[in-house]
Structure formats: C-alpha cells, structure tokens
Write a protein that binds this DNA or RNA. Structure first.
Length: 394
RNA sequence: CGGGGUGUGGUGCACCGGAAACACGCCUGGUUCGGGACCAGGAGACACUGGGUUCAACUCCCAGCACCCCGACCA
C-alpha cells in the first residue's frame, strides 16, 4: 500500500477530551474514527489489524473442530421471550419496532438464535456435538461507553457455541476451548490470565474470564503463584498470598448446563431412546477490545508498538531522496506486506508517522544507504544495514 | 442513572459584555530534503441548540443536546 493513497492521514493532536491511550493513539494514527459514544468506524489500518486478530482466532477455533457461520443481527421478540431475556436483559438490549409494528432486538449475544437454529436440525445423539461460531457486531446498551474502543455500544465479537449430548463431553470441549483461548491470546502477543469469576444468574463457579494486566483495566483480579486469577467479585482468600492487579477482560467462557436448552426445547433422542436436553456453552472474544488492549499494553511515548502477529503491515518502507520504488515493487512481488511511504514530505515527518503507526520493522532507503537497506525494529530501536536479499529472504 | 468537566474555522485551543486571536492542517509560489523544514501570499468560524437578561451576548442566567471523566452497572 502506498501511504500517499492511504485514508485518512495521521493527525498531530489527540481528540479533545481523549484520556485513554488507545483512544488517543488509534485516532491519531488513523486506525479508528468515532461516530458517537461507544461507536467506531474501523478505518483501513484498523480493519487490517482486526482481520489479523480474527484470522488467528479463526484458525484456533477451526482447530477445535468448530465451524464458522454468520447469524442475523436483528432478531424477533418471540425467540427472546422463550428464555425470558426479552425482559430480563432489557437494560442492555436495544429494541426497536418496524413499520408493521413488529418488535425486534439488535443482537447483544446469540444463545437464543443458536438454540433456535439447532432445534430445527437436531434429532439424534449422533448429531452431536455441534460447535459453531461467528464474527459479528454486538449491540449492547452500556450505561457508560468508555475507554476509547475498550467499551463500546457496538463492537465486534467472536462467539462460539457448543452443544453436547453429555455433561462429560461438554466439559471436555470446555477445557479444549480454554486451551485454545490461551493459545490465541499468546499468539496475539498478550499474556492472558485465566480468571475465575462470577457467572451471573445462570452459571456456577465454572465461569472463566481471560484477563490482561493493564493499568487502565476496569477489573481487579487476584493472581496466585501459579498465574491463575480470581476476580475481585468472588475473591475470598487472603490478600497476602496473591498479587492484586487491574486488568482488561478480553475473553469469557460460559457453561450453561441444560438450562437454556430446556427453556427452548432443544432435545435429542439418546442411545437409550429417551429425549434429553443438550448441554450448552458459549465462548466469546471481543476483537475490537483486543485491539484496544494491545495498544494499552504495547505503546511508548511516540506511538503504538504492534506485535508482529497483528500489525497492519510487517514493513513500513520509507523512501527518501525519491528512492524506494524499486524495493517497494520487489517486496510487493514477493508477497511481503508493506506500507510504502512515498509521500512528498520531510524525512522527519515520515519517521514520526512511522513511530506513531507502529509497524514492527521500518525500512529506509536513501542516498545514505547506498545499495543496502536500513532496517529498524520499532520495539527495540535496533537499527542495522542489510542487503536487499536478506530482507527478501526473511 | 447520580456527580463533575467541556462545547469557538478541518483539528487543538485563546480571549472577552462593545466589530473572534494563535498553532497545526489546507491552497499558491519559491527554497529545502535523515527526526513532525523555511520564506512569501491566501482561503476558512456569524462561537452546539433554544429561550432569557441587557442599549449591546461567543461572553452572564435557564433549559436541552453532545462528548469526556468518576461512580453505579457490566453475557
């Protein structure tokens, strides 16, 4: 991508009132734009990051045997009444009425939709387990949207749902997803602390959150010596034995047992010929919140420092003295992800923007570099001259 | 939902009861060219909305709206 064509340009001043680091940096560097409180456009750079995050999640979901789908975001009232959540989740659910006076809800989660889907297709124990997930927008009427993109009223979520014939099979998969989640966060460059938390009305102690330590975190958790966390809301230990930290919740997994299945009549015929309700769980990660969290954790005074796995591009090529075209073409031809700063602006402006945007490796070609290329690591600041071939072969 | 703060060119901000300043950005020309270059010229705001006070309101008062922060809340 040529930076001269990239929309939009970076901006020097952070938005008025912006306090959260992710808010300031993501807006200044041109990754996101705010429409209203809790509602953001993912701009070209931001969308690339989200896709990187989603692809990592997708790979690990698929590795557990789950299949990707896409479910509707506008739901009929009736399906939500079956579980009682049309009323009980009123505060968080956006409701609307169309011109035919039909009551609708905007998706804040998809348990009811999945169960409605499955009951139409589920007959026998041999149809189970079913594991489906999707990436989609969630609408939640948060009392207070805050922290840049960390807490929005409209945000992206990957939600996985699994349905099982037996409790044993359910817990086996639950553990599998737990491991998959830890792997996902590790690949995203984050150290996620698996944390026991209260599960709300319908869940027992088997609810787990994935928390990332950050000074800007909204949650307080206690971490034991093995690295496991306990959310403050259920903490009953002695403070001296734990490390108390603030953290951002980037994922959460829920075990529902057969509660919802029974409410919605999701039964199958078991081996013994009896009808039984399915065991049900859901598993969520918020990619947009993950992006914000990464910025909260990985930045310095100059800008963002993206982990390589989620960076919008691997290389930021800066051409000085009118150079760089040849190298840009070579990198493109070799399928290397590169943002080429071909703009007619000063070297200083290019360097400053590169630091702000935070792509892992900066390449400079100029009169100074001769037939070599200067490569600088955004994270360590380490700089060295390399030949073209070394870079192309990396 | 309770408390607080803020609303002024595209962005960030200043001022003030009496014809709206500065910086950045933008446009034109020239000089520059390895850490947000410089010179010259130029365009661009009736000050969130609606009331009120006043001879006179961007400025004071009231209401509303929006955004940010703290709290409550948080599948």
């Amino acid at each position: 991508m040529r930076q001269s064509q990239l929309f939009p340009k970076t901006i020097k001043q952070a938005p008025a009132g912006a306090v959260a680091v992710n808010h300031k940096l993501l807006v200044r560097a041109g990754f996101v734009d705010q429409l209203m409180a809790g509602s953001w456009t993912l701009l070209p750079l931001g969308w690339r990051v989200i896709n990187k995050i989603n692809n990592i999640i997708r790979e690990e979901m698929n590795a557990t045997g789950a299949e990707e789908v896409l479910m509707p975001l506008m739901h009929p009232k009736e399906v939500w009444e079956e579980t009682g959540r049309w009323n009980s989740a009123s505060e968080i659910m956006y409701k609307l009425r169309d011109v035919r006076e039909k009551d609708l809800a905007l998706a804040f989660t998809h348990e009811e939709i999945v169960l409605d889907l499955v009951r139409k297709h589920l007959q026998s124990y041999s149809d189970l387990p079913i594991k489906i997930y999707h990436f989609s927008t969630k609408f939640r009427n948060e009392p207070r949207a805050t922290g840049g993109i960390l807490r929005g009223r409209e945000f992206m979520m990957k939600d996985l749902y699994s349905l099982h014939a037996t409790e044993e099979d359910f817990w086996k998969y639950y553990e599998e997803v737990k491991e998959a989640y830890l792997k996902i966060f590790s690949r995203l460059g984050l150290n996620a602390i698996m944390t026991e938390a209260s599960g709300g009305v319908f869940t027992d102690k088997h609810t787990h959150e994935f928390q990332v330590e950050a000074v800007s975190g909204e949650d307080t958790i206690y971490v034991d010596k093995t690295g496991k966390g306990i959310n403050k809301e259920i903490f009953a230990g002695t403070e001296a034995e734990y490390k108390k930290i603030t953290a951002i919740e980037v994922g959460n997994i829920f075990a529902f047992g057969t509660y919802y299945s029974e409410k919605m009549g999701v039964y199958f015929t078991d081996k013994d010929g009896n009808k039984k309700p399915v065991w049900f769980g859901s598993y969520g990660i918020g990619p947009t919140r993950v992006m914000g969290t990464i910025v909260e954790v990985f930045h310095d005074e100059k800008g963002i420092v993206w982990p390589e796995s989620v960076a919008p591009y691997k290389y930021h090529l800066i051409g000085l003295n009118g150079k760089g075209e040849d190298l840009y073409r070579k990198l493109q031809d070799n399928g290397v992800e590169v943002l080429f700063d071909d703009r007619d602006v000063s070297a200083g402006e290019k360097f400053t923007d590169a630091d702000l945007i935070g792509i892992p490796f900066r390449l400079v070609v100029s009169d100074k570099t001769g037939d070599k290329v200067e490569i600088k690591n955004r994270k360590t600041g380490e700089t060295k001259l390399e030949s073209l071939n070394v870079i192309l072969h990396e």
